[in-house]
Design a protein around this nucleic acid. Sequence first.
DNA 1: TTGAAAGTTCTCTAAAAGTTCTCTATTATG
DNA 2: CATAATAGAGAACTTTTAGAGAACTTTCAA
Lengths: 204, 204
Amino acid sequence: MLSRREQDTYQVVRDFITHHSHAPLLNEIAAGLGIQSKGTVHRYVRAIARAGLIELIPGRHRGMRLCHPPPAESTSLPLLGRIAAGQPIEAIPDQEEIDLSEFFMGPNRFVLKVQGDSMIDAGILDGDMVIIKQGQRADNGDIVVALLDNEEATLKYLQHNRDDSITLRPANTALRPITYAASRVRIQGIVVGQMRSYQSVSSR
Amino acid sequence: MLSRREQDTYQVVRDFITHHSHAPLLNEIAAGLGIQSKGTVHRYVRAIARAGLIELIPGRHRGMRLCHPPPAESTSLPLLGRIAAGQPIEAIPDQEEIDLSEFFMGPNRFVLKVQGDSMIDAGILDGDMVIIKQGQRADNGDIVVALLDNEEATLKYLQHNRDDSITLRPANTALRPITYAASRVRIQGIVVGQMRSYQSVSSR
DNA sequence: TTGAAAGTTCTCTAAAAGTTCTCTATTATG
DNA sequence: CATAATAGAGAACTTTTAGAGAACTTTCAA
């Protein structure tokens, strides 16, 4: 556990290395911390080394290396802006970040891999992953996982009709909506997210 | 068994750690509890430690650790199976898990929010997020972020032609592919992922 | 080779934080 | 009503943290 100034020191060292691509002198660290004593800096540096964050090469000038710590599995990416055909990328101020777990995670969720093109016009293609939130409650227009006669599962737009029947509507002009008695349909969950990877296995 | 104020103290400590990612000083706990005496706080803290909820490092400033740290925000969801219209969900054996960060994360990536329907037939709709891997290299058929004349940015299928020109092909039958001299087109990155959230603001 | 600059090891100081007390209320509880 | 448990204040003390700087050794480049 590093003290406040030790953490400051670690930050200064890292900043320095990223900017200069070599390690700082003790005096340079001291300047970065706004203090005078290189003896004090040396004490901090040794504490950081003991914590395993850097490696020291004793005696040498600039004798330290970063021990790349566990690459803290981050889950957010910068949201750079909006892209619309025919316009420059509209930058979003304040360097927004988008967090994948916030985007998709939640209780009682699971993922299904989609096979087939029945929802293609809703932008859900063969091979896509859909994130499902478990639950029976769904509103008209939600995309749901519906179980028919406790046998067939299907991914469709949901529509409750006035006569208590249920229409499952595919998003594919080649397929037709079908209406069922409510008793035959069990909603297993609603689609809360969708994702697709374009990374081919070959190209890493 | 903790008394009321001891439980309060535990809560204050946990809140502090989640917000600051380091432990509080006794005085900071006291402020959180609305009391003055750090001696009293110390008594509470020791009681919490005796109950096994925190670990104390005697003497040290901020010398305490949670024994049951909050389960680090997981980023994986169970992949239950494949869903194809008209068939039962095909269960995947071995309870596979899909990790969002593995799916999307990587170096030099960023996110853009798509505006417009130019890639609608590729399942990329207005409002979707696309994950871009920065880089000039792209193969035919990749979806790329292309900068035209250093001005317009656009999301299109890429096609290198034999005569060294470049065709950018939208995925929308209402739009036509356009061919440019290679010098006018700069590839800024290729689409490696796409995601969409169906969670309306209202229904959480 | 040599000397300035850099690293290392100390000791010292002061402020801040942790630790241990005692004292005083207040509130349950048998 | 006596007693114990809870809650808080605060004094006194110890230890850690933060920094300065001297003295010494080593590195490194001219």
